[in-house]
């Protein structure tokens, strides 16, 4: 349970980090909070020849808010994201989701960008990125590019990031509708574990309780967390009555391809997906409609 030998470089800037990645070729890894990478190294599931540490780059740690977007630096600690009240007022799903992410000790070290770049299929933050249609800005020595979450997540522990690229900043759209509500829930063996199934939703309604805008997604049921924009669009104009919800959530669950294991069969996971999707959509709707 000890990591194999490796070389270590502490990058002083993102420019230096990108330069180090470019020089080194394929066997180098960035380390941010290290809450997933370090155990994988301890278990020898990965053996990078060199770690480039971005923890000391202050320029990657920020939360900047404007009316329509929250921009968060990739190396911002999860505890900092969860504690920011102004952010929670604009992108409440992040705080809701982070309550399910690990424990105090791991959130103090773990970063927002690290969780996204690690891309565990049952992790909470990638699901929120999918549901809110976050955009991810990626840096390399040849410049920057920005991808929507839907193009960033490719498979289990696999993203569109190339070996020489560094996630720099994540843009979270702010829903400006006054009556907006959101919810996050999951079932896991113990609180803080990765989810067996996780679900989250965000809903905006008008004064009569008609859905104006909706997004929801499910994680743990396949290779990447998924949002269901086409199904969510069918909720527009409805009041999310039981029949509507049942149809939409069952259709969403049918799109999943969960594996079965010791803890939960594939059939149970599919059932759970529809149940949890119903719960978060209902809770998000009720919160939105409850706003005066």
């Amino acid at each position: 349970m000890k990591a194999a030998s490796f070389d270590y470089v502490r990058a002083a800037s993102i420019t230096e980090a990108c330069e180090l990645l470019r020089q080194d070729g394929g066997d180098v890894k960035l380390i941010a909070g290290g809450q997933s990478l370090t155990p994988m190294m301890a278990m020898r599931l990965t053996r990078p020849s060199r770690l480039v540490d971005i923890n000391e780059i202050d320029a990657l740690k920020f939360i900047k808010l404007d009316n329509n977007t929250a921009r968060i630096g990739a190396c911002t600690r999860q505890c900092v994201v969860a504690a920011d009240n102004a952010l929670a007022a604009r992108v409440p799903l992040l705080r809701r989701a982070l309550a399910w992410v690990g424990h105090t000790q791991t959130r103090n070290r773990g970063t927002l960008g690290g969780s996204l770049a690690h891309a565990d299929p049952a992790a909470e933050l990638p699901l929120v990125a999918q549901v809110l249609d976050a955009r991810l800005q990626i840096r390399s020595t040849s410049g920057t590019r920005t991808l929507p979450a839907s193009e960033f997540f490719i498979g289990p522990l696999t993203t569109a990031l190339e070996a020489h690229e560094c996630l720099e900043e994540i843009y979270w759209p702010v829903w400006t509708e006054h009556r907006t509500g959101c919810a996050f829930t999951e079932v896991s063996r113990r609180h803080g574990d990765f989810a067996i199934i996780e679900a989250c939703a965000q809903i905006a309604v008008d004064a009569d309780g008609r859905c104006m805008r909706a997004s929801f997604g499910l994680g743990g049921g396949g290779t990447i967390p998924l949002a269901f924009p086409a199904l969510a669009a069918t909720l527009i104009g409805t009041q999310l009555d039981d029949a509507v919800l049942k149809g939409v959530t069952q259709d969403a669950a049918a799109e999943l391809d969960p594996g079965g294991d010791l803890h939960a069969s594939a059939g149970y996971r599919k059932h759970l997906a529809a149940v949890l999707a119903t719960r978060v959509l209902r809770a998000a709707y009720d919160e939105a409609y409850g706003k005066a």
Binding site: Y8, R10, I31, G34, Q35, P39, T106, N108
Partner: peptide
Amino acid sequence: LDGEPVRSCLMFAVQAD
């Protein structure tokens, strides 16, 4: 670590410099 609880098995000593 700097006053906040962390897991010392999930950090390398060199990172605590």
